[in-house]
């Protein structure tokens, strides 16, 4: 767990994520590549076993993200979600991910894939569900 936290922290420190004007309550997305545009997700406290939505924003206006993929899993339980989500682009570099259902309490790892000019950026974040 400590190694995993250090791994996440190293991504956070080495990426351009720190430059993103993230709203105070937003969740910073941790990119796996240094050159990935900074990104964050905005959501209310995820309800347990009920659908909810989040907004995902990519900060670099020079890189227009064309598509977003989303998935989530519980590493400790070795399972993912029982539903696929719906993703819709609501503005340049801004997407809504809806019908997310975290059906068990605990730590969920969020996985994002963003497509830009034939390249794919991946991001992760974590959220605790009560």
């Amino acid at each position: 767990m400590i190694a995993r936290t250090a791994f996440l922290a190293s991504f956070a420190l080495s990426s351009s994520a720190l430059a993103c004007p993230t709203p105070p309550d937003a969740t910073q997305l941790i990119p796996e590549a240094d050159h990935a545009p900074a990104a964050y997700a905005e959501m209310n406290t995820p309800p347990l076993s009920a659908p909810f939505a989040m907004l995902v924003t990519f900060c670099d206006p020079a890189q227009k993200i064309e598509a977003l993929m989303f998935d989530a899993l519980m590493p400790a339980h070795r399972h993912g979600m029982n539903f696929t989500v719906d993703v819709s682009k609501i503005a340049d570099n801004r997407f809504e991910v809806s019908n997310i259902v975290f059906h068990m309490p605990g730590l969920w790892e969020l996985q994002f894939g963003a497509e830009f000019a034939g390249r794919a950026y991946t991001y992760i974040a974590e959220v605790q569900v009560k």
Partner: peptide, 15 residues
């Protein structure tokens, strides 16, 4: 138990 038997109805409604 509360991982699956959660919420006021004591079920997460899933499988």
């Amino acid at each position: 138990c509360a991982f699956c038997h959660s919420g006021p109805a004591f079920t997460n409604g899933e499988f």
